[in-house]
Nucleic acid binder design. Structure first.
Length: 543
DNA sequence: CTGGGGAGGGGGCCC
DNA sequence: GGGGCCCCCTCCCCA
């Protein structure tokens, strides 16, 4: 008994999931564009992808071999079995496709292209695209976190004009592609629309963000990368982890689950003190464990569950990365009649999926409403909907003002006073702009508006990768950096890199020995305020 | 084994 | 939009 359309239906479903970013667990970077996909699908389509996705969740493809427009065609082909036509002239497109298909070891597609070219009487004039013969190893694409830092006078920002000028002619469709679902341009210069769409149309977004920030000092990575002449290895296509902020991590990949070699290597290269050195080595062990523990244990067949990059694998971050999953988890919990709004530790945002994040959980106060099959619940009005599309359509009918949490009553006077710390800090400063929900007040309307967003149930800035929602664009941008492993702030002393300037400032005290935070009770000094605070807890805790 | 300290990283939020 | 600070979580090291 065969279901005649089973395979077709499955593929259709998978492609729809890809379009929504649902359960996508790998990001492929091609030049300026990001593509989300499913590891299983990629692995099933090509041995090359299979070896890449085994250890990495962020893959950079060699831009000599494939450009974003072509890769979009390829990804569509993988997910549909259909080759969609491109704007390019046929033979030119088939040449590019054949190059890329050979490079990616998509044999069926390559054969199809060859056939097309043969029929057209045009010989293949593309590049030699088989990784196993060493072509790819020649030029190792920098890991994503590095490749935009060109040491340019602008401090290494995404060099918009340069990147643009490189891409001409047919490749302009790169940027058309960036507007497609699942293909996000990282190049701010490609669009005047530098803002993210709001949560109601999150699946069709363009990043348009400069996530790179400027780099005060950037260690030259390319030499180290090129020294790694792993010709013939699929890894040589610079499958990189998102936090591959240093080539140490790449070494780690190279050594493939052999942390001992790494630590030894670092000791040789490092001129920092023993303690610091140890520290760094231990950090790498952490990374190692995250990315490769399973592969060490069982020969590399099992992937660490749901890990995008090392540091992000921490438990509490998984919720963010796998927002879509949580979305459904929350839905499941609704089905199971659980109240997950409190004890489960989910915040609304953590329950967030891609678009309707804040609406998919059973809200307290609505629990007695019989939802029936309407599992998607609009929090502001309590209406249930059978699917996310209908809910999204409904959500758009709400105005911003309606989305405020109407919970003035829940704010006690004491809480309100606690929350009015800005006033307490600057008692003499006039703060005429008062929040209508809590008692806080601000000097200017922009800050007030910013603050008022914290009362909204919808968070207007979704992460394009994991769907997590943020109240401030800056927070979301910062969060995106962590996905992409962008660490623009480098320590000149030890080369350690950070996602934030503030972290670097804190870190520099390690080198200077400065300990500005002193415990008034015991005189203990600390480099970081947070450690003084945790120290003070030790004094005040009863035990 | 445990508690304390050091430090990396993430999010919230105000300026 | 970016900077800065706060709070939290977590990991690692070490006594």
């Amino acid at each position: 008994m065969d279901l005649p359309n089973h395979a077709k239906q499955m593929l259709l479903q998978l492609n729809q999931q890809r379009a929504k970013g649902f359960l996508c667990d790998v990001i492929i970077v091609v030049e300026n564009a990001l593509f989300r996909a499913h590891k299983n699908i990629l692995a099933a389509s090509s041995m090359y992808f299979k070896s890449l996705v085994l250890h990495d969740n962020l893959i950079n493809l060699d831009t000599d071999m494939v450009n974003p427009a072509v890769f979009r065609q390829i990804l569509d082909f993988i997910y549909t079995g259909k080759l969609l036509t491109s704007d390019q002239p046929g033979e030119q497109n088939f040449n590019a496709l054949l190059t890329a298909a050979s490079y990616l070891q998509l044999h069926d597609l390559a054969a199809l292209c060859r056939k097309k070219l043969k029929r057209a009487g045009k010989p293949f004039i593309g590049k030699l695209g088989v990784p196993s013969i060493g072509r790819v190893g020649r030029r190792l694409s920098a890991p994503f976190g590095h490749m935009r830092y060109s040491g340019s006078p602008d401090g290494g920002k995404l060099s918009q004009t340069k990147e643009l000028s490189k891409v001409t002619g047919p490749e302009d469709e790169v940027f058309a592609a960036s507007k497609q679902e699942n293909c996000h341009s990282l190049n701010r210069g490609t669009s005047s629309n530098s803002s993210l769409n709001n949560s109601t149309n999150g699946s069709d977004q363009e990043l348009g963000l400069d996530l790179s920030k400027k780099s005060p000092s950037l260690p030259v990575q390319d030499d180290a990368l090129q020294a790694d002449s792993r010709a013939g290895s699929p890894q040589s296509a610079s499958a990189s982890v998102a936090n591959s902020a240093s080539y140490e991590d790449l070494d780690l990949q190279k050594n493939n689950c052999e942390p001992m070699e790494l630590e030894a290597g670092e000791e040789n290269n490092s001129d920092i003190g023993p303690k610091k050195l140890h520290r760094h080595a231990s950090r790498k062990k952490e990374w190692m464990r995250i990315e490769g523990d399973k592969c060490a244990e069982d020969g590399g067949e099992t992937m660490p569950n749901g890990v995008i990059v090392g540091p992000l694998s921490k438990e509490r971050n998984l919720g963010g990365i796998y927002g879509s999953e949580q979305n459904f988890q929350c839905k499941d919990e609704i089905e199971n009649g659980k109240d997950n709004s409190d004890e489960s530790g989910h915040s609304e945002s953590e329950c967030s999926g891609h678009q309707n994040a804040n609406y998919i959980y059973r809200q307290e106060g609505f629990e007695t409403v019989p939802f029936g099959d309407n599992l998607y619940v609009c929090i502001p009005c309590g209406k249930g909907f059978p699917n996310s599309e209908q809910l999204n359509a409904h959500v758009e009918t709400h105005t911003e003002e309606e989305l405020y949490i109407k919970e003035e009553d829940s704010y006690s006077k004491e809480e309100a006073e606690d929350l009015s710390t800005p006033n307490a800090a600057f008692p003499n400063e006039p703060r005429p702009f008062k929040c209508s929900v809590c008692e806080r007040s601000y000097k200017d309307p922009a800050t007030l508006r910013q603050h008022e967003k914290t009362h909204w149930l919808t968070r207007p800035f979704p992460c394009n990768i994991c769907g997590k929602m943020f109240t401030q664009r800056g927070t979301m941008t910062r969060h995106m950096r962590s996905h992409l492993g962008l660490k623009p702030f480098a320590c000149e002393e030890c080369g350690m890199r950070f996602t934030r300037q503030y972290r670097l400032t804190e870190h520099m005290r390690v080198h200077s020995g400065e300990k500005p935070y002193e415990c008034q009770l015991c005189g203990g000094k600390f480099t970081q305020q947070r450690n003084l605070i945790s120290h003070l807890r030790m004094h005040t805790s009863p035990s």
